[in-house]
Amino acid sequence: MSLWEKITNFLSSGYTEQAAAVPDAPEAEPETSNDSLSRKENGMSYTISMTVNGTACSGDVEARTLLVDFVRDHLELTGTNVGCDTSQCGSCTIIMDGKSVKSCTTLAVQADGSDVTTIEGLATNGDLHPLQQAFWDEHGLQCGFCTPGMIMAGVGILNENPDPSEETIRHNLEGNICRCTGYQNIVKAIQSAAQSTKGAA
């Protein structure tokens, strides 16, 4: 690394920390997995374990703890957002055992033993997932708040149908609300990701 690069790296990293008042979520600590749901002595706490983004993790939760709160607060994976309280907006969409689900309408105890992927787990070895890349390329986001849910819904759509029509995409986005983009570039992004995945296959 040249001195110039070192200096600029230092400058940019220094600034980023200053501006990033909100710390990035740390990687989930790998923990030993518990095979079955066990109820603790006090009667209100349950130990659950699941694989999140490829890492085994476990935690003690109340029965009423929503999966999204477990992911956000216990695992500190705050990429999954909460946008409503009636299961309409889809901001909290994650992939659970291969299917898109609304993590705000799922109890953490229901996810015990499951395999969960959140937006943080989509990129592999630092390479963006084709949908992430397509959302970026096609300007499929503005404020970014619905985006993780939209991308995960997109993953669900392409899991079901690798080459969906515009109509199919629009229909299958019925569980996700975006207030910024008017959806057009989201639809284009999913179309484009489908094409790029097909090209790569």
């Binding site: 299917k99 898109s100 669900g156 079901e160």
Partner: peptide
């Protein structure tokens, strides 16, 4: 019914 995420659960 509902939407894909709801149908999945």
């Amino acid at each position: 019914i509902g939407d894909p995420q709801v149908r999945n659960r």
